[in-house]
Design a protein around this nucleic acid. Structure first.
Lengths: 144, 144
DNA sequence: GTATCCTATACCATTTTTGTATACTTTTAT
DNA sequence: ATAAAAGTATACAAAAATGGTATAGGATAC
């Protein structure tokens, strides 16, 4: 019942990028040092974030990564799903046929876990990276 | 971000016991067959549940397991904690020194994840095994 | 055209989870 | 008493997931 290390790293990376002036490009090597994340592993994670439209990548000299959207438009859920895939708190919610009693349709356990899962997802959706520390500077930079 | 197979088995076992008349003792072998759980693995899980005061065990001939409390007094959280230990959704919430930025005290990520964790825990605490399917029969058996 | 940066895929090591085996203790019925 | 039927305890093994690395290649600015 725990988020992976990769997701934790992803949070940090997005939080870091959120703290920079909008559009600022940073190379992965710098982020890796700053955030104490193994470079290769961070690169892998950043590719997931890019594929999910959370970050943008720039190849070549002076390349790097930047946020693809405003911090306020990136939720914790977005990052989690980009890295881990959909949030599913139990096996039977992933694939009903894994419920070896084949009881998914009427199993009360099923219904209850689904409901809890939905409220967890909602919690993750509610929080974005402007609400978090990094967002302050970003908000200021966008001039309020 | 998923409950373990062991926890899923534990849910089933408690749900099964909840569906029986109060105090009824059932041997592990029967439960294993009924619920399609490997016997040895189930025994291990039942020991965790017993240690947590959720089930009671009886040794010797005609021994087995029964619920130690009424289904309505057993929450999903009780079972999860018995099997997996405390619910901690991120590493930095387990051991602040694992936050390799040593920023636990002021890190906004930290605060936010903690708050989400608390509401998840609350959800798990709210649901008990009388509310679930098995509880019906149990409630009836206790005569309402 | 080359140095610098990202991309893609495959690989490996470690840890966690799931499941099994072995030896032992408790209890009850005979 | 004692044998059979249960649970207990610990250690071990297999499998899956996770974390991290390596290698080869592609894009871009200068």
């Amino acid at each position: 019942m725990r988020l992976s290390q990769a997701t934790d790293y992803a949070f940090r990376a997005v939080l870091f990028l959120s703290s920079l002036p909008r559009g600022q490009v940073v190379e992965a090597k710098l982020m890796a040092e700053e955030l104490k994340i193994p470079l290769r592993f961070l690169l892998k994670i950043l590719r997931l974030l890019t594929r999910a439209g959370i970050t943008e990548s720039y190849q070549g000299l002076n390349g790097g990564y930047a946020l693809a959207r405003a911090p306020g438009d990136i939720s914790l859920l977005d990052v989690i799903e980009a890295v881990e895939g959909p949030v599913k708190i139990n096996r039977c919610l992933i694939a009903p046929e894994e419920c070896n009693r084949r009881a998914a349709s009427y199993c009360p356990m099923h219904k209850t876990l689904f409901s809890i899962q939905q409220s967890l997802i909602e919690e993750f959706r509610k929080r974005n990276f402007a609400d978090l520390g990094g967002g302050d500077r970003a908000k200021n930079a966008e001039g309020r």
